[in-house]
Design a protein around this nucleic acid. Structure first.
Lengths: 218, 218
DNA sequence: GGACAAATATAGTCTTGACTAACTTTCTTC
DNA sequence: GAAGAAAGTTAGTCAAGACTATATTTGTCC
């Protein structure tokens, strides 16, 4: 009987899909490792190894280390943008007041996406940190600004507001993502903080756009 | 005539102060380098060289690389705490409404400290990023919480509020510090965002503590 | 002014990590 | 079923950076 040298030949996916799957696996693994050891200690070698590959295989898919982070960042931004667009589709037609009333949902969904994506905190930081990556974040900012501008078009809003809200959102998002790491063992309290931020943003939306006379600020 | 081997002997400070001065210079230089090249590219060798020293000299003052960052972080936290305490001393006695009315000052002063400290953005990130450094940030959080608790003692405030505000402040601070890097060339707009945040926080303070009946949130 | 301590330099070690040249295996296609 | 492309491997190179053993200078104190 001839010795079997190779495992029972699990049917590999067709070559056409393999590249795509492998690339995705590399990204997933990169995210997991970011979550586990932080950005300073993640190496391309680790990523490749955890994905069951050797280093040069990784370089087949990504030009260099930054390209991995960039792809990861893009994927996260797309997911966040989807959340925003769904939320706008649901609430923008009903006007600013309706949006303000549901701002908590947006925060919660955003937080859920961030939490579901391993290493998201590090990805966000990396996006703000490296000259090579900042443009990904800026593209997202512009996209969000455009969507908000569309959504506000029908409701009398000063033209600079959408861009300011977008920046506000990015800053708060990053702040809380990092904050989450700081207070990892303390999720209950995190929820309380989020509730506060939601209340703040609600007032910000209502008051800054369209100051209600009854609540004027002087 | 005998050749002069050494520079014109600038009078060095007495040995007693030298260590202290050198340590401070190392910290200053570390901050500058953080600001210039980002945390991934700062090395202990660079820091020592820029301070006019050799690597082992740095290790005389700091046990390892993290110790430098930790000291830098502590220094920044102390400066921020001073700002907060000054602000509280000025406004807390007059009550929550007065505090809310001057919240913009606090933000502006905090932002000024962050901007005056080269590399502050990186320091803040590092404090959130490394298990070795997180405790510095937590200590600051506790300190702020205590101060706020004292300040609020005389004004009916739910006992969990000071801790929540402290976390809010840390998160917003980090978010905007990072944001500032993202929009470096765009300071005007930064000011506008800060104004928005101030307005938000004002409402948060007023509404969350002590909901005015006229503005009730349902 | 000599002994001791503080401050700093010389000259490394050693590890890690990004990246690559060249080869091999596996799949697809005609 | 052979040619060629795609996916992946072996076995490295090279540079940088954290950290150190040891020597040397400089200041202080009696």
């Amino acid at each position: 009987m001839i010795a079997v040298d190779r495992p029972p030949a699990v049917k590999r996916p067709p070559q056409q899909d393999r590249a795509h799957l492998t690339r995705g696996r590399l990204l997933d693994v990169a995210g997991e490792l970011l979550a586990e050891v932080g950005i300073e200690r993640v190496s391309t070698n680790m990523i490749a190894a955890r994905a069951g590959l050797t280093p040069p295989a990784l370089y087949r898919y990504f030009g260099d280390k930054y390209a991995v982070l960039e792809a990861l960042g893009r994927r996260l931004m797309e997911r966040q943008n989807d959340v925003l667009e769904g939320w706008l589709a649901r609430h923008a037609p009903a006007g600013i007041a309706a949006m303000a009333g549901h701002i908590g949902d947006l925060l919660a969904e955003n937080a859920a996406v961030t939490r579901a994506e391993p290493g998201a905190v590090w990805i966000l930081r990396a996006l703000h940190a490296s000259p090579r990556l900042v443009h990904v974040r800026l593209e997202s900012h512009r996209h969000v600004t455009d969507r908000l501008t569309d959504a506000c078009a029908a409701h009398l809003v000063a033209p600079d507001r959408p861009a300011l809200w977008s920046r506000l959102r990015l800053a708060v998002e990053l702040g809380f993502a990092a904050d989450e790491m700081l207070y990892e063992e303390d999720r209950v309290s995190q929820a309380a903080v989020l509730a506060d931020v939601a209340a703040m943003l609600r007032f910000a939306l209502l008051d800054l756009i369209d100051p209600p006379p009854a609540c004027g600020r002087g």
